[in-house]
Amino acid sequence: MTTPPEAALARLLEIMVRLRAPVGGCLWDREQRFETIAPYTVEEAYEVAEAIGRGPEMGALLDELGDLLFQVVYHARMAEEAGVFGFADVAEAISHKMIRRHPHVFGDAAAGNPGWEALKQAERSSAKDDGVLAGVPAALPALTRALKLTRRAARVGFDWPDTDSVLLKLTEEVEELRAEIPAAKPERLADELGDMLFVVANLGRKLGLDPEACLQAANAKFARRFNAVEAQLAERGATPAEVGLETMEAEWQAAKKSERTAKTPHLPDQ
């Protein structure tokens, strides 16, 4: 029989209390602070996304969601120890927020839905920092933050008119980076490379694509193909470090061809 959610959550909260207990708890867990746990929280969120991307197998997702929930419990416990808030306050706060942002569901349905972004903007306006870019977390992955910042700016008309304009800007940034390479000043190179990547993020936005997801897919493709290169070399008793670039490039092209062949549908013989 499945454990009731209230009982399962109560058990998890008690486990967290025990782990952080001054007497009988875990030394490592007792020493942690918000700042030291935050990187694990981000990592667990990415692992949830990775589990989803692996396909329909739900076992991994169940496990990763548990890890992510534990992170919320961890932060809430540290806040409770500091006398600020507890897990119940976190749950209540998000419940109130969701009800407030869905008046068409929890309020007067006839009033219609004013829109998620309009409601969020109203919330930001009531806060001290109510600028167009307010509320975009600085800790987001850089490409994702670039996407969110420029989406906000675009809503008030600060945007390139079309994709071609972004491509022209990208060409300009590439040339500016090229011009800095002979001097090889790290700070100038970093500045120009950053500008180029920022424009690339905007190009993704203009194309209706998430640049972070695109780069993640490119990373996965590179890893998959390089692993195939290693495997092919291993069959010949060699390693990448032992062969030249020409050999590795040949194996790389073979891996690309193999992928394309696998993706091409086989038509029935005529």
Rank of each mutant, 00 (worst) to 15 (best):
E187W: 08
R151A: 07
A262R: 13
A138T: 08
T264E: 10
S125P: 01
L168R: 15
A142T: 12
L143C: 01
D29M: 15
Q32E: 14
P186A: 11
L197F: 12
L62E: 09
P182W: 05
D29G: 11
T171P: 02
R11V: 15
K148H: 11
A183R: 15
F222S: 07
M98H: 14
A184V: 07
V229M: 06
A51H: 03
P56R: 12
P211Y: 01
E176F: 07
D210I: 02
W116M: 14
M1A: 15
E50V: 05
V17K: 09
F158Q: 14
A241H: 11
G25A: 12
E235P: 02
F158Y: 13
R188D: 09
M78Q: 10
A154Y: 00
D129T: 03
H104V: 06
K257F: 08
G194R: 03
A118T: 15
E31D: 13
G135Q: 04
H102D: 10
L9M: 09
F85T: 06
A8R: 04
Y46L: 15
L245S: 13
R151M: 06
A138R: 10
I181G: 05
P182A: 08
L207H: 02
L143F: 04
G53W: 01
G204I: 02
V199D: 01
L140F: 04
L267P: 05
E180S: 08
L170H: 05
V200S: 03
A7V: 14
L167D: 12
L189M: 12
M248Y: 02
K169W: 00
E187S: 09
A218D: 05
L143A: 09
M248V: 06
M78G: 07
F34A: 15
G86F: 02
D129M: 08
G83N: 04
E251M: 08
M98W: 12
E117H: 14
A38F: 11
G66L: 05
L133V: 11
E80Y: 07
E80A: 15
C214H: 04
D269M: 07
Q71K: 13
Q232L: 14
A250P: 02
L9G: 04
A234E: 11
E251Y: 00
A254T: 03
R54D: 05
L13P: 00
L197H: 02
T171F: 03
A51P: 03
N219W: 04
A262Q: 13
Q216L: 11
A218L: 12
L197V: 09
A184W: 14
G135A: 10
E80F: 04
A110E: 10
A262K: 12
R33D: 15
A88T: 11
A213H: 01
T171D: 09
A213L: 10
M248Q: 12
W116P: 02
A179D: 14
N227W: 02
M196H: 05
